[in-house]
Amino acid sequence: MNKTTFAHGQLKSIVERIERLEEEKKVIAGDIKEVYAEAKANGFDTKILRKVISLRKKDAAEREEEESMLDVYLAALGMIPGAGEEAA
C-alpha cells in the first residue's frame, strides 16, 4: 500500500466518522427538543430553563464574573433602580 492509497483510506475513514457523529448529533438534538417540549407542556418556561442549563455549565467564579459585568452594563444603561448613571 503506498502513501496515497493510505491517505485516501484515512481521509475516507475520517469523513465517514464525522458523518456518523453528525447524524448522532441530529438525533440527540431532536431528543433535547422533545424534552424541552415536555417541559413546556408541564408549564415550565423553556427560555428560563435554557438559561438555567447554561448557568449550570459554568463554575461559580465564572457565573459571578458574568453577573458582575451584567450589573455594570445595566447600571451604565440606567436599568438598575437606584444605581446612578455615570456621566456619558
Rank of each mutant, 00 (worst) to 15 (best):
N2S: 10
K3Y: 07
T5C: 06
F6M: 06
A7H: 05
H8P: 00
H8Y: 07
H8D: 13
G9Y: 01
Q10H: 14
L11A: 13
S13P: 01
E16R: 01
R17A: 09
R17W: 00
R20A: 09
L21V: 13
L21E: 09
L21P: 03
E22P: 06
E22S: 05
K26D: 02
V27E: 11
I28A: 10
I28T: 10
A29G: 05
G30F: 01
D31S: 12
K33Y: 00
Y36M: 04
E38A: 13
E38F: 06
K40Q: 11
K40R: 14
A41S: 13
N42K: 04
N42R: 06
N42Y: 04
G43D: 01
D45N: 15
D45Y: 02
D45Q: 03
T46A: 07
T46H: 09
T46K: 12
I48M: 08
L49W: 02
L49M: 09
R50V: 03
R50L: 11
R50S: 13
K51G: 00
V52G: 01
I53Q: 07
L55E: 13
R56G: 04
K57V: 09
K57W: 10
K57T: 09
K58A: 14
D59I: 01
D59F: 10
D59M: 05
A61T: 11
E62Q: 08
R63H: 02
E64V: 03
E66N: 06
S68C: 03
S68T: 12
S68I: 00
M69N: 15
L70W: 06
L70T: 10
L70M: 15
D71W: 04
D71N: 10
A76W: 13
L77A: 12
I80F: 02
I80T: 00
P81R: 07
G82V: 02
G82D: 02
G82M: 04
A83Q: 09
A83I: 00
G84M: 09
E85K: 15
E86R: 11
A87N: 14
A88P: 04
A88K: 13
